[in-house]
């Protein structure tokens, strides 16, 4: 490869990365600024202090919101993995009359946008008395057509001979599921898990509807609250809150970029 071309590509990569990552870098920078720096539209803080972080944790119950987000995201991740892997196991291995029809029914849910059903879902959740509880934030998301589809694709890549061999060994269906299929598909389970965690952590509209007090409110709604309480005067504090909210998911992305790319493209495109 000639050097001119390489240099050009590196230049484009650097410029693109800088533009794309600028808002995040700048948010981090502002989170260390005092009011004067913000007012002067400085790019970097004139002095370095954690005051904004101290303030943000005292002005809203940020730790409590973080805990809520962790609980909700973890529960949804576990729920989705359980429900999706059981369903995908049937769709990949156990034939019965009407299975194809059921699979189409599952895929049909992909055509129904969550926002189109949220009014009725809100009324249901209200009727069940789930408002301001973890149940409202988690249970409606346990079944994911995308998850079932993704896992089914991976389960189907397991050689059927392996399944038959396990049957001849005398393993029950559940034992095959638990001791053969799941370990064999560990990577795709991890992919789906990361994806579920990310999307749940970042959910906004539904938590806004079903949390009317602090008890189970998630960090995303905390950010909205912070922005309305602190805005105009204390942008540094708001940005400190933003940094705290994005840190867990950014770390997750940094660790798992390769894994996600492989796992998701296989599921989405095959």
């Amino acid at each position: 490869m000639n050097t001119g071309r390489t240099t050009l590509i590196y230049a484009l990569l650097f410029i693109s990365a800088l533009i794309l990552f600028f808002p995040i870098l700048y948010a981090v920078s502002v989170s260390f600024m005092d009011g004067k720096d913000v007012f002067n539209r400085a790019l970097l803080p004139s002095s370095f202090s954690f005051d904004n972080y101290k303030k943000v944790f005292s002005s809203v119950p940020l730790l409590h919101y973080l805990k809520n987000s962790f609980v909700v995201s973890s529960l949804v991740t576990i729920g989705q993995l359980t429900v999706a892997s059981l369903a995908a196991y049937v769709f990949a291995f156990i034939p019965f009359k009407g299975r194809d029809f059921l699979f189409i029914v599952v895929l049909a849910t992909l055509m129904i946008p969550w926002e189109a059903t949220m009014i009725s879902n809100f009324l249901t959740v209200q009727h069940l008395g789930w408002v301001n509880s973890y149940r409202a934030l988690t249970i409606p998301f346990f079944a994911s057509a995308f998850g079932i589809f993704l896992l089914r694709q991976h389960f189907k890549s397991i050689p059927y001979e392996l399944y038959e061999a396990a049957q001849i060994e005398g393993l029950t269906r559940f034992q095959i599921f638990y001791r053969v299929v799941l370990p064999y598909s560990r990577m795709s389970l991890v992919t789906l898990g990361i994806y579920s965690f990310l999307t749940t952590w970042n959910m906004y509209l539904w938590p806004l509807l079903v949390t009317t007090n602090d008890s189970v409110r998630t960090i995303q709604i905390g950010l909205k609250q912070l922005q309305t309480v602190e805005v105009a005067t204390e942008w540094g504090v708001v940005m400190a809150g933003v940094v705290v909210a994005i840190l867990p998911t950014l770390i997750l992305i940094f660790i798992s970029q390769k894994q996600l790319q492989k796992g998701l493209t296989q599921g989405a495109l095959k």
């Binding site: 390489t6 502002v30 990310l198 995303q220 950014l250 997750l252």
Partner: peptide, 29 residues
Amino acid sequence: LRGIGFFRTIFTSTMGMSVAASAVIWLFL
């Protein structure tokens, strides 16, 4: 290219950004 993994991660990074956090940052910008 050498170091391409770094750029891939940076380009993927906004996937980890929630709509609330992104909107607050841009509100400021």
